[in-house]
């Protein structure tokens, strides 16, 4: 099972690189032109992350280099041990539902510090990729149609995020632990 998932992941980009343009071409799409148009968006998406990256990487740099991070992680260590997780992923639980950009930058900081292919780098990536900015989505979606009473929707959203977080951590540990 794990090997299958890993093989599928390894083939994903090559398959997309061949499959999508070929499929598009057969359906009469101007594939090169559309690719370039879409790629244009990538530029601004990346540039727009700079302020968030600066805000979070700076704050994390201060917090880490001062020694405060080590102290806080030592405090959080019992919780982390209970969950069988490195304590460095725990801040994502707080950041993720609040701000996609902030948790994205925190994940970038994790990978920058420990390497994208480390277990921590993969844990952070999997959590970031499996959970959503629940509070933001609820506010925007309900706000757009003038709904003030969200009933049980926030509770459902949080439950889903917690489930996603736990599942992402379990699966990553299962797939990548030596």
């Amino acid at each position: 099972m794990g090997d299958l998932v890993n093989a599928a992941a390894r083939w994903l980009l090559p398959v997309f690189l061949v499959g999508l343009p070929l499929y598009g071409y057969l359906r009469g799409v101007d594939v090169y032109g559309e690719f370039v148009d879409g790629a244009q968006e990538g530029f601004w998406t990346a540039i727009k992350t700079i302020p968030f990256m600066v805000a979070i990487l700076t704050a994390m740099a201060v917090f880490r280099s001062s020694g405060a991070l080590t102290a806080l992680l030592n405090l959080a260590a019992p919780v982390a041990r209970l969950l069988h997780l490195p304590s460095e992923v725990l801040p994502l639980v707080i950041l993720r539902p609040l701000s996609g950009s902030a948790s994205f930058a925190y994940t970038a900081d994790l990978m920058r510090s420990f390497g994208p292919d480390s277990l921590l780098g993969r844990l952070g990536s999997a959590v970031q990729g499996s959970t959503d900015t629940t509070f933001f989505v609820l506010t925007v979606y309900f706000g757009s149609v003038g709904i003030k009473d969200a009933r049980y929707a926030p509770a459902v959203g949080i439950l889903g995020d917690v489930a996603g977080f736990i599942a992402a951590c379990l699966l990553t540990t299962l797939l990548f632990s030596p």
Partner: peptide, 29 residues
């Protein structure tokens, strides 16, 4: 950290452009 934040975003431009380009083709198809 500020220097790395910008370097990271610059590196991100290329990979993000590739994926968004591919996905635009998928959308149009």
């Amino acid at each position: 950290a500020t220097k790395q934040a910008v370097e990271l975003a610059i590196g991100f431009i290329g990979t993000m452009s590739l994926w968004l380009g591919l996905m635009r083709v998928a959308e149009k198809a």
